[in-house]
Structure formats: structure tokens, C-alpha cells
């Protein structure tokens, strides 16, 4: 079992190298640093000196991957590839294009992101499981039918409308919560409630319908018939057998996203002005700060792979068929 997990962990290395190469190609080969500089400096008739200076300030003035002028090992290390891409492996994200320390920013901003994402995940999971379990219990009845229709309708609404609708209705018209902003420490909750509620509600449609399919799939299995043949009540069958088995795909589906919770929610954070990593990313995109986008791409990939690894581990913990083989 350990060997399997170690193997999976080792497999992450070539994947990360792949991601790294991909981002390098995307950011430095498709468009040269000169193009970037020209784009940033804006003016049509920008001078070569200005471009050179812009590049030098950000360390983009080196050769891409092979420094002919350097000596020895520096032929490799004194390049953009080494400075900007290889260093990511050490989680050395460097400076943003506007000169800030990205690593420091990330460590500051991940907490507000978590403060939103974790409650959305936990409360959302509880609500979705309860709701879909109810639909599964009443399967085939009108309650189930209209419940599914409600789910489909809810998942047909763009997340943007949930946010805008929530802000206008709960924030502006009813004046229950502040529309946007953030506060440090314990006072943050006032600003968190609205985005969290919206995050949960917008996820109910897709989540509940998906879990309902999982439950119904288990309900049709032979061992559920065995459980009924024992004389168990429908509730006991549902909680003792169906839920137990369906929780395996549900939990492992949740585990895979746990690490990426750090990345925050792009939309919620930017709408509500919460200084998390999501709004950090959005701001970087709109300011066209490539250094930050590059760092976030790499960080996201690392977290996703970590999620896959955690999924493998959680499978071995939850499912005796995997654990005992």
C-alpha cells in the first residue's frame, strides 16, 4: 500500500515538470519578453531603451534557456528558464511585474480565501447530501421529480447572477449584510456571510443532482436488495448501506478539491472585494501581471496534484477493497 502511494507521489514529479515547461513555453516562447514589454509600455512608438530597461528591471533580459556568454554551469542557470521556471520548484515565486514579493503576497492572502472556501465546502456538502438523500428516499414520487427540476433550474443559472442577485437582494435592498469589503481578524465574519451563503446556494443544483445519481446507483445494487431481504427498514437501508457506499465517491470527490481551496474563489472574492488569492489572480489577469499568473498556474497545478494524491490516500482509508489489497 505504501509503495502505491510513494509511486503516485513520484509520478507527480514528471507532471510538475510538464506543467512547468508548458507555462514556460506559453509565457516566454509564444511571445518574447520584448512583446510583453511593448504591451506593458503601451505606447506605439516605444524606444528600444525603454524595452531593455523594462526587461532588465524584471530579469527578462537574459537568454531563454542557454546562455552562450556565461561560463560553466551558469550557461544553464543564468537564463530566464532557470530564474523564472526552475525556481518555482523551490516555491520561489520571485517578484511580480510590479515589484512585489509574490511568495509573501500568497502567504498573506490565502487566509481570507480559506475563510470563504472552507465553510462553503463543509456547509455545502452537508446541505447537498441531505437534500439529495431526501430525493433518493422519495425517488419516483412527485417530490423527487420537482426536486430534480429545481436542481436543473438552479444549475442553469450563471454563478454571476447568484452573486449579483444576492448582493442586490440581501445586501442592497434588505440591507442585511455589507455588500463588499473585508476586515481583519474576528470582525471578518460580517463580510463573509453573504459570499458564503451565495457560494453554497449556487452549488446546490449541480451538487445535489450529482449526489442523487450516486445514491440511486447504489440503491439498485444487489446488496441493497439483500439488506431489504433482511427486513431492514428503508431508513436503515438508506443510511446504513446506500449512504455508506455512496460516500466513497462523494468524499474522494471532495478530497481532490481540498488543496485547491487555497486558491480561493475567483468570482466571489472579486465581487465582494475580499483580499484572497482569487481576487489576487483576477487583479493580476486584468493588470496583465505575468509573473503572478505564472506563479498561480504553478501553484494551482501543485495543489491539484496534491489533491489527486490525497484522493488516492483517502481511497485506501475509506474503501476496504483498496485498503486490504
Amino acid at each position: 500500500m505504501m509503495a502505491y502511494i510513494v509511486r503516485r507521489a513520484l509520478y507527480a514529479i514528471p507532471i510538475l515538470i510538464g506543467v512547468n515547461l508548458l507555462t514556460f513555453v506559453l509565457f516566454f516562447v509564444v511571445n518574447s519578453p520584448d512583446d510583453m514589454a511593448r504591451m506593458h509600455l503601451g505606447a506605439k512608438r516605444v524606444t528600444d531603451e525603454a524595452i531593455q530597461q523594462w526587461k532588465a528591471e524584471r530579469g527578462y533580459d537574459k537568454p531563454l534557456a542557454w546562455n552562450v556568454q556565461a561560463k560553466g554551469i551558469e550557461k544553464l542557470t543564468d537564463t530566464i528558464f532557470f530564474d523564472k521556471s526552475v525556481r518555482l520548484f523551490a516555491f520561489d515565486f520571485g517578484q511580480s511585474d510590479s515589484g512585489r514579493n509574490i511568495g509573501h503576497d500568497i502567504s498573506q492572502r490565502m487566509w481570507p480565501s480559506l475563510a470563504i472556501a472552507v465553510p462553503i465546502m463543509l456547509v455545502g456538502l452537508t446541505i447537498n447530501i441531505s437534500f439529495s438523500l431526501m430525493l433518493a428516499f422519495f425517488r419516483g414520487t412527485y417530490l423527487d421529480f420537482w426536486g430534480v427540476v429545481l436542481c436543473v433550474a438552479m444549475m442553469s443559472i450563471s454563478a454571476l447572477f447568484y452573486i449579483i442577485g444576492g448582493q442586490v437582494l440581501l445586501g442592497k435592498l434588505l440591507n442585511l449584510f455589507p455588500i463588499s469589503g473585508y476586515d481583519t481578524g474576528i470582525h471578518a465574519w460580517r463580510f463573509l456571510i453573504l459570499p458564503v451563503v451565495i457560494g453554497i446556494v449556487s452549488g446546490i443544483g449541480a451538487g445535489s443532482r450529482w449526489y442523487r445519481t450516486l445514491f440511486l446507483e447504489e440503491i439498485n445494487k444487489d446488496f441493497v436488495r439483500t439488506a431489504r431481504a433482511k427486513g431492514l427498514s428503508e431508513q436503515a437501508v438508506l443510511f446504513g448501506h446506500v449512504l455508506r457506499n455512496a460516500l466513497i465517491p462523494i468524499l474522494t470527490g471532495v478530497v481532490v478539491v481540498i488543496p485547491t481551496l487555497f486558491m480561493g474563489s475567483l468570482l466571489l472574492e472579486s465581487f465582494f472585494g475580499i483580499p484572497g488569492l482569487g481576487s489576487y489572480t483576477i487583479d493580476a489577469i486584468s493588470r496583465q501581471d505575468f509573473a503572478i499568473v505564472r506563479a498561480m498556474v504553478f501553484l494551482g497545478a501543485v495543489l491539484y496534484i496534491l489533491g489527486l494524491l490525497l484522493t488516492d490516500i483517502s481511497y485506501t482509508l475509506v474503501d476496504p477493497r483498496v485498503r486490504l489489497n
Binding site: 508548458l22 499568473v293 491539484y304
Partner: peptide, 8 residues
């Protein structure tokens, strides 16, 4: 490819 967050 799928380990890079899609939006990014």
C-alpha cells in the same frame, strides 16, 4: 494538462 487550473 488537466492539472493546470482551467481558468488560469
Amino acid at each position: 494538462l488537466s492539472s493546470v487550473p482551467g481558468v488560469l
